[in-house]
Design a protein around this nucleic acid. Structure first.
Lengths: 352, 352
DNA sequence: GAGGATTATGAAAACGTTTGCGGAACAGTG
DNA sequence: CACTGTTCCGCAAACGTTTTCATAATCCTC
């Protein structure tokens, strides 16, 4: 029977009144004393309910609740060897392309035992590696979004912690990717259909994987259709980067421009409008990303949309399943078709 | 002398060759063995150099380096009782007003021993408290940016961890604030000077501190100048929230509108432009925040600018100094004048 | 050169958990 | 009743640090 133990309840340790919880100071030992059991039993009651008597468990839980007991995470991490944190590093929080990605990852982990560390590299490679180093000590895994660090550096990081890559490939870590090809192909076909034969690519950061990717696919699609492609840039991948691009693209004598992303496309559009240049009359513009603002300008931006939400959840799920074998396995990567990009034709493209 | 110890160097423990670091597996004990000292000495060499012999220290450091030793943070946290993490909770990462704030805080802590946990509540109060609860266990302090949680809840949080508030006051925690008054006053004076006598306030979230604050000051400034103020909303504090606001403000028969923030102002502007309404000809618009996009629209937005960067650094510094007594004390709060807002007159305000 | 002050180091306790091992109580089986 | 198996629980070790305390070695001073 457990009756005697119940009887012992109020006898030893703390007074049994409904005292206010003592501000995160209650240890597992305090709970154990109050409940008249050993710390082991408390731990088991909390973590493996099937190992303790139902009545004992009820009592332990009640005592834990009364004391406002919260297990000390440092102690748990120490013995378990896991932090139950994951890190997320993105190039720029302020870039509206990454916001949905971040939200997707955070939303995914909100319902798990994991908390996420988010950091912003300010588009700077050195900061990126410093942040990665700092995070490694505190997390079980790292989601790297469009990382710029070198391959060898990436390998070093992956050697120390679980890594999943978004928008970047590597032999050393799993990655989730967008399939740029469909959207890019549609964009070039669209521009071609409108009669454009001389176009420009407004490049983003030279060491960016997506920049290379976009340039490559664009080159191929243009070549295939006999479109001449001029390379401009690189430009800062921001709105203001588009200002400079606008002036240079005008001077380049092309009739259409593909921007590295929506921000520079929007910057180009703004600058052109300010200079009194007609869009799409004198120049057609195609963006990349479909950030929220893209649909809100005048004219609204023709752009290539990405299923960022699917991408972020895929990244999070991949990480989760490598960290916690009990996690919903799901297909480690959704079928590529889910991550296909597609062209959104709006107002900034027109006949030459 | 220490010569004998040097001689002992390669004799015991690990082979002395430049082995590759063993993937974060090296403990302080391994370093101690390799260096031929006790773990205590290694700890001291790392944390309180003045307590160990210079030569010993050099040797320890070299061994630590060779093994790629990284102290285990969980163990440190456990004994020290501090995590050396701080949490930062904001309503919405995608809101361009918060991005600079976040970056400011992250930049501040980048050069300290602290790492920052960032989370986004999606403007949802319940999520906010859940995130706060989850973070409390993992951080030494929490920076709450424009929190919406109730006062009692806030007190409960502040009882468990150090808290600093941004854009919200409370008896239970220090806060850093923007002084809305100057900017607001300038805005009303500006609109009054242009001849407007019937204006509207496009409200933000009803439970938001800044919303109340703005409404109050606006009401006072308008009353003082004999301007009639209509209350519209609340609206979602986003671009799309402005769409609905635009239609309602047109129906309200006013000649000028103060938006809760730039996003809704921009939304209004966009919707109005789409409906063919002249801005500022038929309606003048004043925003709040001076987000980057505000200067890039056509016409550019008249808005009240905030020294967000100063605000975020003040918040971070306040937190830092309460956490680490050794931190640069600085004035706990910069003089209010530094945090004053001011009106930026651009293109969306004109004579009635 | 004896004594006290100073410096450098090691041993061990402590932080708060989890978990392997073993033992006690009890149930079932022959 | 003896034996085996099961259920429940406590003891103690372990995780990797930091820090107190004690001790040995060295230095200084008269």
């Amino acid at each position: 029977m457990t009756a005697d133990r119940i009887g012992a309840d109020g006898a030893d340790g703390e007074p049994a009144g409904p005292r206010a919880a003592d501000a995160s100071r209650a240890s597992i030992r305090a709970v154990a004393n109050l409940a008249g059991v050993s710390p082991s039993t408390v731990s088991r009651a909390l973590n493996s309910p099937e190992l303790v008597n139902a009545e004992t468990r009820r009592r332990v839980l009640e005592c834990a609740d009364r004391l406002g007991y919260q297990p000390n995470r440092a102690a748990q991490s120490l013995v378990l060897g896991r932090t139950r944190n994951v890190g997320l590093i993105v190039p720029d929080i302020a870039n509206p392309f990454y916001a949905p990605f971040i939200k997707g990852v955070e939303a995914y982990f909100r319902d798990t035992e994991f908390a996420v560390f988010l950091a912003d590299t300010d588009e700077d490679t050195a900061t990126e590696v410093r942040l990665a180093e700092a995070m490694i000590e505190r997390v079980d895994g790292l989601i790297l979004c469009a990382p710029r660090m070198s391959g060898t550096r990436l390998r070093a990081v992956a050697a120390k912690t679980a890594v999943v890559l978004a928008n970047r490939t590597s032999r050393n870590a799993p990655s989730v990717l967008l399939d740029f090809e469909p959207g890019m192909d549609q964009a070039v076909a669209h521009v071609h259909a409108l009669g454009h034969r001389r176009c420009a690519y407004l490049a983003g950061p030279a060491n960016s994987w997506s920049n290379k990717q976009r340039r490559r696919l664009l080159g191929a699609a243009c070549a295939e259709r006999g479109i001449e492609l001029a390379d401009l840039g690189p430009y800062e991948p921001r709105f203001t980067g588009g200002y400079r691009a606008a002036d240079e693209v005008l001077a380049a004598g092309v009739s259409a421009a593909f921007a590295y992303n929506d921000l520079v496309a929007l910057g180009v559009l703004s600058r052109l409008t300010a200079r009194g240049v007609q869009v799409p009359g004198e120049l057609s513009i195609v963006g990349f990303d479909d950030v929220p603002m893209a649909s809100m300008t005048n004219p609204p931006l023709t752009t290539v949309a990405m299923p960022v939400n699917a991408l972020s959840r895929a990244a999070a799920a991949t990480m989760h399943s490598t960290l916690d074998p009990g996690a919903p396995k799901a297909p480690p990567l959704p079928p590529v078709s889910e991550l296909a990009t597609r062209l959104l034709i709006r107002g900034t493209t027109g006949p030459v």
